[in-house]
Design a protein around this nucleic acid. Structure first.
Lengths: 237, 237
DNA sequence: CTGGGGAAGTTTATGTCGTACACGAAGAGT
DNA sequence: ACTCTTCGTGTACGACATAAACTTCCCCAG
């Protein structure tokens, strides 16, 4: 049959040009991040990453990242590298920590998968370690012990990544159920409200589902962050 | 033809007694929770749940729960039902919220998978709704609007489930890498410390990895919870 | 210039999952 | 006794991660 034979008649001219060595960790991680940003963690398969790099087979990636979990670790550290990190703490410890928290939040907004993965992997990447070291330095300079500083840093990150996780999972649900247009979203809320109203003992929840009100996500984040920073301030010597 | 026969020799006695209708949601959910408690979320497969119920096929479950996500929802609500919930708020709003947070934490200690799933599913189960309503009631009685109460309740839960998530994922890592005995755990920490020390710019982190110190998980939880409750108190009218 | 070793990518295969579908058998209601 | 419904099974399919064996190419030592 046709001249594009791979089986019967191997004419060199019709064969695809041999693949040059084009892959490395950086490219693979960048492609994986691109895929995860666009398709979510569910869409992050080895096949999809390979396809995002060109005509590669999924197995090609294993030569460079040796497992999907390894790829996760590299993705986490690459995303963490995007967070601007001062070389030295500035004059105001609260500003230092607040700014870092806000920048971290901005990164998680670009990479919604981050908050999911960060809870599943140990934070051993170099950029993640440097970021943590910065928080520790800021707190230790205010008189905290290293153990206390670890506790406070963990509380800040709990809030940052907790917010990010909740918001990204909400967005995921909406995308999965096609709630992007207002009509569907309204219907989904109405269904929830009916459920709550049917119980009969949920007046406040029903009210909120009828008139959802309250601070924006951004304001909610700031409120919680202030709670943590105020709390830390109250415990510094 | 002979009755009961599937193969060559139709002896009724060698046939298993026909399966009676024994499954229902409750049993399935209880079995699923048992499996997840013991084997973790990775071990929670339809096959494992069916096996935990007796000689059932995995497909039998679908008659009652229609999908694995549906099973997740039922598991979340069943676990939430284990949290003691007063019918009415008591005299002290802080005590009410703190007690609920602590009881919730006790539940997540029994069911480490809870914190993972709760972030992935909408909290629409009746018990989850009642629990939320309780928090809203407590806060609204102190003068918060429903919108504010939602914000504060979310912050409390963020801390409770964030702690649980972190602790359960740490435990999972340790189990997965067989760090149950001290020698291996020590080696793992040493490896991390080498990594940190090699960077050269991570003195505080290195110090902490050399002498891990600080509050116990329980104390850390209490500290963060106080931060949130203090913050709420400062914003109530 | 050459040939051999190792690295990069592909093909093929394996085992595990969730779950759709069609079937058969076991009560329940008439 | 007959039918309708409800429950559980067997089989099958398509993803997915990844192991193993194979092929092709590059580079460097002689």
């Amino acid at each position: 049959m046709g001249e594009g034979e791979t089986t019967a008649f191997p004419l060199i001219w019709t064969q695809p040009p041999p693949r040059r060595r084009g892959l490395d960790r950086e490219k693979i991680v960048a492609a994986a991040i691109r895929v995860a940003d666009e398709a979510g963690l569910d869409g992050l398969t080895m096949k999809a990453v390979a396809a995002g790099l060109g005509p590669y087979s999924p197995m090609a990636l294993y030569r460079h990242v040796h497992s999907k979990e390894g790829l996760f670790d590299l993705m986490l550290d690459a995303a963490t590298a995007e967070i601007p990190l001062p070389g030295e703490p500035g004059g105001d410890w609260r500003d230092d920590l607040r700014t870092l928290a806000l920048e971290t939040r901005r990164m998680t907004a670009r990479h919604p998968w981050f908050a999911v993965l960060v809870h599943a992997r140990p934070p051993a990447g170099p950029h993640m370690m440097r970021r943590l070291e910065f928080m520790l330095t800021v707190l230790v300079r205010q008189g905290a012990t290293v153990g206390e500083a670890m506790t406070y840093a963990a509380l800040i990150d709990r809030h940052v990544f907790g917010s990010a996780l909740q918001e990204s999972e909400e967005a995921r649900q909406e995308r999965r159920h096609g709630l992007d247009d207002d009509a569907r979203l309204y219907a989904a809320i109405a269904a929830l409200r009916e459920l709550a109203a049917a119980d009969g003992r949920l007046p406040h929840l029903t009210e909120w589902l009828t008139h959802p009100a309250g601070p924006t996500p951004e304001e909610r984040f700031a409120i919680g962050l202030d709670f943590v920073l105020d709390g830390i301030a109250g415990r510094l010597p």
